[in-house]
Amino acid sequence: MEKHETGSRVTLTTGAHRTESAVSKLNADMTSVKEVTAEVTRWKLMGLGALGVTGMAAAALASLVTAYWSDIWRVLRGR
């Protein structure tokens, strides 16, 4: 702790300035962390959406193959 005398005032300085600086830096870092987290969450949601669309397309194709299996098999056998 440092003691500074200026005129009739005596001020004591501690590591308060350093603490404020560290807190300010931490807040800035947390802001960038929140931005990255939001972006990764957006990627995850887009990926799940793409996976869902792919799954629906595969289900539609599978149901078409199932519905027309006898016709497909006949064409493949050449009759």
Rank of each mutant, 00 (worst) to 15 (best):
K44Q: 11
Y68W: 08
K44S: 08
L61I: 14
I72F: 05
T37C: 06
V40L: 14
Y68M: 08
G7K: 01
V75S: 06
D29P: 01
T41A: 13
S8A: 15
S21L: 15
D29M: 06
E2M: 06
A38Q: 10
H17W: 10
R77G: 01
G49L: 14
T66Q: 14
T11G: 00
K3V: 13
S21P: 00
L12Q: 02
A58D: 02
E39Y: 02
T31H: 08
E35D: 08
S70Q: 08
M46D: 15
V23F: 04
H17S: 14
E5D: 12
A50G: 13
V53K: 10
V23W: 03
A28H: 06
R18D: 12
T14S: 05
V33H: 01
R9E: 14
A50C: 08
G55R: 01
M46H: 10
S32V: 08
S24C: 04
G15M: 02
R9V: 15
E39L: 05
R9Y: 12
L76H: 03
M56D: 00
K3D: 00
K44L: 13
R77L: 13
A50Y: 07
L45R: 10
A16K: 10
R74W: 01
M30L: 15
V23N: 02
G49S: 13
L51C: 07
A60G: 03
V10R: 01
M46R: 15
T66V: 14
V53A: 12
T11F: 10
E5S: 06
L45C: 00
Y68K: 15
D29Y: 10
V53D: 04
E2I: 09
L61D: 04
T41V: 10
S8H: 09
A16D: 06
D29V: 05
K3A: 03
A16I: 11
S21D: 11
V40S: 01
W73F: 09
V40Y: 02
T54I: 13
Y68Q: 13
